[in-house]
C-alpha cells in the first residue's frame, strides 16, 4: 500500500520539537485577586463609613452637601485576615445620607499583597459599593495589575463580594507574559475554578512559551542538525 507522504517539514524544527509541551496561560490567580481586592475594598470602605457617623474621623476632610456626606481622599491601610497588608484610597467617597446604602467612590485604588509576595492593584475611575448587597460595581474601565506581570483590563465589573463571583463586561483583555485573552465578557464562579469567557473569545499563545522550554532541551541535547530556513 503506497504511503501518502505529506510534505516533510525541515528536520531541525521537528527535531527540536520532539519533546515539548505548549503551556496555555489562563488567569486563575486573577479571579481570587479581584475578589480579594474587592473584599479588602469593602473592608476599607465599611471601615470609613462606620467611623464617620461617630465622628472619630477628622471631619474637616468631609463635608455634607445637599444630603450627601462627601469624604475627601479617604485612605486606609490595614491587614487582611491572613495578615497581608492592603491599602485603599479614593479621591472622594460620597455617601448619600438618605439611607441608601450604596457609596459612590471616585478614583479608587486598592492595593494588596498576594500570597506569592507579588502585589496586586485594582484601580477604577468610579465605583459603587453597596454594603447591604455586598457588591462592588465598577461601571467604568477597571485595571488590575500584578507586580509579576499580569494585567487585566475590564470594561466594567460587578464583584459579588460575598461569593467572590465576578462578572466583567464591555471587553475584557487579560495579558500575561506569553498569553493574551480577549473577550467581550467574562464570568467567574466558584473562586476562580470555573471561568467563562464569552462573545468573541480569542486566546493568543506566544511560541516562546514553548521554544524557551525547547531551547533548554536543545542546548541540553547539543543539537547539531542544520539551522532551519523557515521563510
Amino acid at each position: 500500500m503506497s504511503k501518502v507522504v505529506a510534505k516533510a517539514a525541515s528536520n531541525d524544527a521537528f527535531e527540536r520539537a520532539r519533546r515539548h509541551s505548549t503551556k496555555v496561560r489562563v488567569f486563575k490567580r486573577l479571579l481570587p485577586i479581584i475578589a480579594l481586592v474587592g473584599v479588602v475594598f469593602v473592608g476599607g470602605v465599611l471601615f470609613i463609613s462606620r467611623i464617620v457617623p461617630d465622628g472619630s474621623v477628622d471631619l474637616a476632610s468631609s463635608t455634607i452637601s445637599d444630603g450627601k456626606l462627601v469624604m475627601a481622599s479617604p485612605k486606609l491601610n490595614g491587614m487582611t485576615k491572613d495578615k497581608r497588608p492592603y491599602r485603599v484610597t479614593a479621591s472622594r467617597a460620597i455617601q448619600d445620607l438618605s439611607g441608601e446604602t450604596a457609596m459612590q467612590l471616585e478614583k479608587l485604588v486598592a492595593k494588596v499583597e498576594l500570597e506569592n509576595g507579588a502585589e496586586a492593584e485594582l484601580s477604577a475611575p468610579t465605583g459603587s459599593f453597596d454594603e447591604e448587597k455586598s457588591t462592588l460595581l465598577l461601571d467604568q474601565q477597571a485595571i488590575l495589575t500584578t507586580s509579576d506581570g499580569m494585567r487585566a483590563v475590564l470594561g466594567s465589573a460587578d464583584i459579588d463580594l460575598a461569593s467572590g463571583n465576578v462578572t466583567a463586561k464591555d471587553k475584557v483583555t487579560i495579558t500575561q507574559e506569553l498569553t493574551t485573552i480577549y473577550s467581550d465578557k467574562m464570568d467567574v464562579y466558584d473562586g476562580g475554578n470555573h471561568i467563562i469567557f464569552s462573545d468573541n473569545v480569542t486566546l493568543v499563545m506566544q511560541p516562546s512559551v514553548v521554544s524557551k522550554k525547547r531551547q533548554d532541551m536543545a542546548t541540553a541535547q547539543e543539537d547539531i542538525s542544520a539551522t532551519v530556513d523557515t521563510n
Partner: peptide, 8 residues
C-alpha cells in the same frame, strides 16, 4: 484560537 466561548 478563536471561538464564541471559552470555559475553563
Amino acid at each position: 484560537i478563536d471561538g464564541d466561548k471559552l470555559e475553563i
